[in-house]
C-alpha cells in the first residue's frame, strides 16, 4: 500500500469516527440548549445503545431493524426517566448541582450495565456483510462504513427538518435562546427539557449502535466516545448544530491522521489536546459567534 492509499484509508476511517462524534456532539448540544448543563450521562447512552443492540440481535436473535428501533427507544426512555426523576426533582437547580447529578447518574447507569452484561467486549454483526469494497484512491471500506455515513446523514437531515419545520423543534430553539421568554409565550419548558433528554438518549443510542459492528461494544465504550464527542461539540462551538457536524468530522480526521502518521500511542490524547487548544485560542469554537464573555 503506497502513501496516498494510506492517506485515503486514514481519511475514510477519520470520516467514519467523525460521523459518530458528530452525532454524540449533537446529543450534548440538545441538552445544553434546553437546560444549560453538560450532560455527562450522554456517554452512557452510547454504551447502552450498543449493549441493547447486542442483547437483542445476538442473545435474543431479534431482527436487525426491529432491534435498532427498540434499542433506540429503550435508551430514549432511560433519558426521559433521568429527567422525570432526579433532574426534575433535584432540590437545588443550580447548574453546578445538575452537572454533578448527571455525573452521578452516569456512574449509576455504567455500574448497572456492568452488572447486567459484565465487562467483556462483545461483537454485533454488521448490518450487511463484511465484504470490503475498494474505493477510488485505493482505500478499502466495509459496508458498515457506508451504513454509518448514510445513517448519520439521514439523522442530520431529520434533525434539520425537525428544528426548522416542526412546532416542537421551533419551541426547542426558542427555549435555547431564552428559557423565560419561551415560558412566557406558552412553551412548556419542562416538556422541552424532558423531550431533550429523550432525544439525546436516542441520538446517543444511534451512535453506539452503528459503531458497535466495527469496534465491538462493552459496558463502558461510551466513556471515550462520549468525551470525544464532547470535545467535538466544543470544537464546533458548544450548542451550535452545524458546529457539531463540523467539529465531529474535523476531530475524527485529525485523530485518524494523527494516529496513523504521528503516533498511535497517543491516539486518545489527540482529541483532548485539541479540546485544550480550542479552549485557549477560541473558546467559542469554530462556528460559535462572537467572543465568549470574559470577566
Amino acid at each position: 500500500m503506497d502513501f496516498s492509499q494510506q492517506i485515503a484509508q486514514y481519511i475514510v476511517t477519520g470520516l467514519t469516527i467523525g460521523a459518530i462524534y458528530a452525532i454524540v456532539a449533537m446529543g450534548f448540544n440538545i441538552i445544553h440548549n434546553a437546560t444549560g448543563i453538560v450532560n455527562f450521562a450522554q456517554c452512557e447512552f452510547i454504551s447502552l445503545g450498543g449493549m441493547f443492540m447486542y442483547s437483542l440481535v445476538v442473545l435474543f436473535k431479534v431482527n436487525l431493524i426491529i432491534s435498532f428501533f427498540i434499542s433506540m427507544a429503550g435508551v430514549a426512555l432511560i433519558g426521559a426517566l433521568i429527567e422525570i426523576g432526579p433532574i426534575r426533582h433535584a432540590r437545588s437547580k443550580e447548574i453546578i448541582v445538575l452537572i454533578f447529578l448527571t455525573i452521578g447518574l452516569s456512574e449509576v447507569l455504567r455500574g448497572t450495565a456492568q452488572e447486567v452484561w459484565g465487562t467483556d467486549n462483545v461483537g454485533v454483526p454488521a448490518f450487511s456483510g463484511e465484504n470490503p469494497i475498494h474505493l477510488l484512491g485505493g482505500a478499502t471500506i466495509v459496508p458498515q462504513h457506508i451504513w454509518i455515513f448514510a445513517i448519520t446523514v439521514l439523522v442530520m437531515l431529520m434533525l434539520h427538518y425537525f428544528f426548522k419545520k416542526t412546532l416542537m423543534g421551533k419551541a426547542m430553539r426558542a427555549t435555547a435562546v431564552n428559557r423565560r421568554a419561551a415560558a412566557l409565550v406558552g412553551i412548556s419548558v419542562n416538556r422541552i427539557t424532558l423531550f431533550s433528554f429523550a432525544f439525546s438518549g436516542a441520538l446517543g443510542a444511534v451512535a453506539g449502535i452503528i459503531i458497535a459492528p466495527i469496534s465491538t461494544t462493552s459496558y463502558d465504550t461510551g466513556i471515550m466516545l462520549g468525551l470525544k464527542g464532547f470535545a467535538a461539540a466544543i470544537l464546533g462551538g458548544y450548542g451550535n448544530f452545524a458546529g457539531a457536524i463540523l467539529g465531529g468530522v474535523i476531530l475524527g480526521l485529525l485523530e485518524s491522521l494523527g494516529a496513523g502518521l504521528v503516533s498511535s500511542q497517543y491516539k486518545d490524547a489527540i482529541a483532548f489536546f485539541i479540546l485544550l487548544l480550542v479552549l485557549f485560542l477560541k473558546p467559542t469554537g469554530i462556528m460559535g459567534y462572537g467572543e465568549a464573555e470574559r470577566v
Binding site: P86, F100, L101, I103, G104, S106, E107
Partner: peptide, 9 residues
C-alpha cells in the same frame, strides 16, 4: 461504581 453513583445522586 453503583454505590458511588447512587450516593452522589
Amino acid at each position: 461504581i453503583i454505590a458511588y453513583g447512587v450516593f452522589l445522586c
